[in-house]
Design a protein around this nucleic acid. Structure first.
Length: 627
DNA sequence: CGCGCTCCCGCCCTCTGCTGGCGTCGG
DNA sequence: ACCGACGCCAGCAGAGGGCGGGAGCGCG
């Protein structure tokens, strides 16, 4: 990234220009990228920074914002913005100097946390002298120098990504050291670190290596390089005084290899070289079965195993087998050891995999990163979004193998098969009443509707009783059901319905409120008036005649025995449409439990009774058995 | 170089629970 | 005939388990 871009900026200098809160998008990119790789963020125009104070400031012309120094994943949301600067002619004495200034906006604390130090790429101007400078200007009130550590200088060969071990030199800046001079004799490089009272220090290179035209400056407050032979910025003054001496020891120290593209650091050249290949698209190993290419032979072999079904890693506790050892380990954690290393800090949840914890945490944060493109729904994971999209497409991928009904979700189909086609279908008994419900969720609805406590008083519609549970109220009100609650004040008559009592009272009072408009005859009930009107005053009235299928005579009323359902249909003037024959019916006539005699009707038979008879006479009337 | 391990993303599954339409029943 | 209650049922979303597989790195 930076290497190629920066190299295109000849005669420019790079400046750490500003710190800002990292934009949300930038954060996501960082997260997506693992948060451990620096990105070439183009800074927005509003990032115009304050200029460095001091002598340099006036002599430098700012050019353009070039880089954002993304901090490590664990760091705060700050970005160091690099900006290329040009020196004016006034800065003659500073010619060929690369200027770095680190500033920060007011109120924003600079945090460049470990483990990942920031990397600054500096391109030097065409070298006109042997001395190269890097100046770092720090305003003390903004950024404590103890928090800044110049960790390493890499003098890189042009366009070579891999740093030469020999060109690397570690530098540590001691707090009180006014001038730190670091040497590495073999390379004829000399680094000079100076810190002024204005928190300004220089790192001067006196390189004789003409190939070195790039400098990587690593800035960090961390002690990433804290190795046994390297001093750190936080060490005491006495130790700082020895810093030069300690640095000299780096000649024989354990050396590390820093990737110039990302934050990768390795102590082994081989690992470093292998890592650098990850920054290329080189994938030389081809799968001859699917033509997919891979970076390493191991990856190819694992991939080919997925084609061949070769699973060398077998579980000792079950018959599962896997392509890689990692899959076996994970399987064992899930199925056998139940080891869950990833624990949620907000609840007791723990998971086998980090990704599961990450997904779980979204249930705490409410984050829904997966937005539906057709509605406002957003999901916490990809699968839910995919499942949701079926509501737009109408797709029903699950089909019942018995009745071929289709379903959107497998669980719905499973319940369907269980409830509709299954044997020994489980039922759920309500713990508070005799209700049995097929589904647990419906039982929950039942409980909520009928058995939940009601703060409001539930009053009986027939009496003064009060309840706080609907079920209790309903049960209580049923006790009023067969009760002849309406009692006549004049006789022993009692009935269930008020309108019946109203009509009965008229037998005592003689009241006949329904008068025929044609003959002034009065009736106690409206239906009697209606029957009178139809019979004597309606010319279009044709009385229905029901013929008995056995004797052939016509009758105005009939009854149909419909079988063992205890229901008979009653037709004719003044009759109801349905007559429910229950325990009150005369024995031996209709009620099936009483048994059928020779004169009893058969199911489905049409019988007649005398026209004009009431219900009781109908039930007691003579019936003809149909053929 | 290969092995072992970790990390990460993706996919699919199950279990769970809520919702609303529908049919039936009873008042 | 009407209406409210309620169980049945499919639709749908939340949460989590389990596995497939690519990628990268430490280390022998």
């Amino acid at each position: 990234m930076a290497a190629t871009e920066i190299s295109a900026l000849s005669e420019q200098f790079t400046k750490i220009k500003e710190l800002e809160l990292m934009p949300e998008k930038g954060l996501k990119e960082e997260e997506k990228d693992g948060g451990c790789r620096e990105k070439d963020h183009r800074s927005p125009s509003e990032l115009e920074a304050e200029r460095t104070s001091g002598a340099f400031q006036d002599s430098v012309l700012q050019e353009e914002v070039e880089l954002v120094l993304a901090p490590s994943e664990e760091s705060e949301k700050h970005i160091l913005t690099l900006q290329t600067v040009h020196f004016t002619s006034e800065a003659v004495e500073l010619q060929d100097m690369s200027l770095l200034s680190i500033q920060q906006q007011e109120g924003v604390q600079v945090v460049v946390q470990q483990p990942g130090p920031g990397l600054l790429w500096l391109e030097e101007a065409p070298r006109q002298s042997l001395q190269q400078y890097v100046a770092i200007s720090i305003q003390q009130e903004l950024y404590s120098l103890q928090e800044i550590e110049v960790l390493q200088f890499h003098a890189l060969e042009e366009n070579v990504m891999v740093a030469s071990e020999d060109s690397k030199l570690a530098v540590s800046l001691a707090e009180t050291a006014g001038l730190i001079k670091l040497e590495e004799g073999q390379e004829k490089n000399q680094l000079l670190a100076e810190r002024t009272k204005e928190q300004l220090f220089f790192v001067e290179t006196m390189s004789g290596d003409e190939r070195s035209d790039e400098i990587v400056l690593t800035v960090s407050n961390s002690n990433v390089e804290e190795q046994e032979d390297q001093p750190t910025a936080g060490q005491a003054d006495a130790e700082k005084a020895k810093s030069t001496k300690n640095q000299r020891k780096t000649k024989g120290a354990k050396r590390t290899f820093h990737c110039d593209v990302c934050m990768f650091i390795s102590s082994r050249m081989s690992s470093f070289n292998r890592h650098m290949k990850t920054h290329t698209n080189e994938k030389p190993h081809l799968c001859h079965l699917c033509l997919k290419t891979f970076r390493t032979v191991t990856l190819l072999r694992n991939h080919v195993n997925t084609h061949t079904g070769t699973r060398p890693y077998k579980c000792n506790d079950c018959n599962m087998a896997f392509v890689t050892s990692g899959e076996l380990v994970r399987h064992r954690r899930y199925k056998h050891t139940h080891e869950k290393p990833f624990k949620c800090s907000m609840c007791k949840y723990a998971s086998v995999e980090a990704s599961k914890l990450k997904r779980h945490v979204r249930s705490h944060t409410g984050e829904r990163p997966f937005q539906c493109c057709q509605c406002s729904y957003a999901s916490r994971d990809t699968y839910k979004l995919k499942r949701h999209m079926r509501t737009h497409s109408g797709e029903k991928p699950y089909e019942c193998h018995i009745c071929h009904t289709r379903f959107t979700q497998s669980g719905t189909m499973k319940i369907h098969i269980l409830q509709k086609h299954g044997e020994n279908v489980p039922k759920y008994q309500c713990p508070h009443c005799a209700t049995i419900i097929a589904r647990k969720s419906d039982l929950r609805v039942h409980m909520r509707n009928l058995h939940a406590y009601s703060a409001a008083e539930l009053k009986c519609r027939y009496c003064s009783a009060v309840f706080h549970e609907r079920y209790a109220l309903i049960q209580h009100q049923k006790t009023h059901k067969n009760e002849k609650r309406f009692k006549c004040k004049h006789c022993s008559y009692a009935c269930k319905q008020e309108r019946h009592m109203t009509a009965h009272i008229r037998t005592h009072t003689g009241e006949k409120p329904f008068t025929c408009l044609f003959c002034n005859k009065c009736f106690r009930q409206k239906q009697l008036l209606n029957a009178h009107f139809r019979k004597y005053h309606d010319a279009n009235f044709i009385p229905t005649v029901y013929k008995c299928s056995k004797c052939g005579k016509g009758f105005s009323r009939w009854i149909l025995w419909v079988g063992n359902s205890e229901v008979a249909e009653l037709g004719g003037p003044g009759s109801g449409s349905l007559l429910r024959l229950q325990s009150g019916c005369p024995p031996g006539l209709h009620h099936p439990k009483a048994g059928l005699g020779p004169e009893d009707p058969l199911p489905g038979e049409l019988r007649h009774t005398t026209a004009g008879t009431g219900l009781s006479s109908l039930l007691q009337g003579t019936l003809c058995r149909a053929a």
